[in-house]
Simulated assay, not measured.
Amino acid sequence: MAAAAPVRDRIVPVRRPPACQYADMRILRILAALVIAVAALSACAPTPQPQPTADAATPTSTPMPRPSAPPTGPVLAYDGECASVFADPAAVLGFDAEALPGDADLPTGLVTLGGLKCSWVAVGGTFEAVTLMALPVTQVPEELRSRFATTACEWSFDTPYCHLAGSVGETWVMVSKRALDEVGTPPDLAPVLAAALERAATVPAPIAATPTDEWWDSVDCATVEQAAGIAEVYAPATFEPGYPAGFGSWPTDGMLASTDQWCPWYSYETSEAVWMNLLPGAGSQWDDVDFTGATPVDVVGAEAAVLVTVDDNLGLVDEREVLYATDGTNVLRIQMSPIPLEDLAARVFAGMADAGR
Rank of each mutant, 00 (worst) to 15 (best):
Ala5Tyr: 04
Val12Asn: 01
Arg16Tyr: 00
Arg29Pro: 04
Leu31Glu: 12
Leu34His: 13
Ala40Ser: 15
Ala40Gln: 15
Leu41Met: 15
Leu41Trp: 15
Ser42His: 15
Pro52Lys: 12
Pro52Trp: 12
Pro59Leu: 02
Met64Ser: 15
Pro65Lys: 12
Arg66Thr: 15
Ser68Phe: 10
Pro70Thr: 05
Leu76Arg: 02
Asp79Thr: 10
Gly80Asp: 01
Ala87Tyr: 08
Asp88Lys: 11
Ala90Phe: 11
Ala91Asp: 09
Leu93Tyr: 03
Val111Ile: 13
Thr112Pro: 04
Leu116Gln: 06
Ser119Gly: 11
Ala122Leu: 09
Thr126Gln: 12
Thr126Trp: 14
Thr131Glu: 06
Ala134Asp: 06
Ala134Arg: 01
Pro136Phe: 03
Leu144Gln: 00
Thr151Phe: 04
Thr151Leu: 06
Glu154Pro: 03
Trp155Cys: 09
Phe157Ile: 06
Leu164Ile: 00
Trp172Leu: 01
Val173Trp: 00
Ala179Ser: 08
Glu182Asn: 07
Thr185Ile: 08
Arg199Trp: 07
Ala205Arg: 09
Ala205Trp: 05
Ala205His: 06
Ala209Leu: 02
Thr210Glu: 03
Pro211Gly: 06
Glu214Ser: 10
Glu214Ile: 07
Asp220Phe: 01
Glu225His: 10
Ala227Gln: 08
Ala228Met: 04
Ala228Glu: 04
Gly229Arg: 01
Thr238Val: 13
Phe247Trp: 13
Phe247Arg: 05
Ser249Ile: 12
Thr252Phe: 06
Met255Leu: 14
Leu256Thr: 05
Asp260Gln: 12
Gln261Glu: 10
Tyr268Ser: 11
Thr270Trp: 07
Ala273Tyr: 15
Met276Lys: 09
Leu278Ser: 03
Gly281Asn: 03
Asp287Cys: 08
Asp290Met: 10
Thr292Phe: 13
Gly293Tyr: 01
Ala294Lys: 05
Ala302Cys: 05
Ala302Ser: 07
Glu303Ile: 06
Val317Leu: 13
Asp318Ala: 13
Glu321Asp: 14
Ala325Ile: 12
Gly328Ile: 12
Leu332Trp: 06
Ile334Lys: 06
Ile339Lys: 12
Pro340Tyr: 13
Ala345Ile: 09
Phe349Val: 04
Gly356Pro: 03
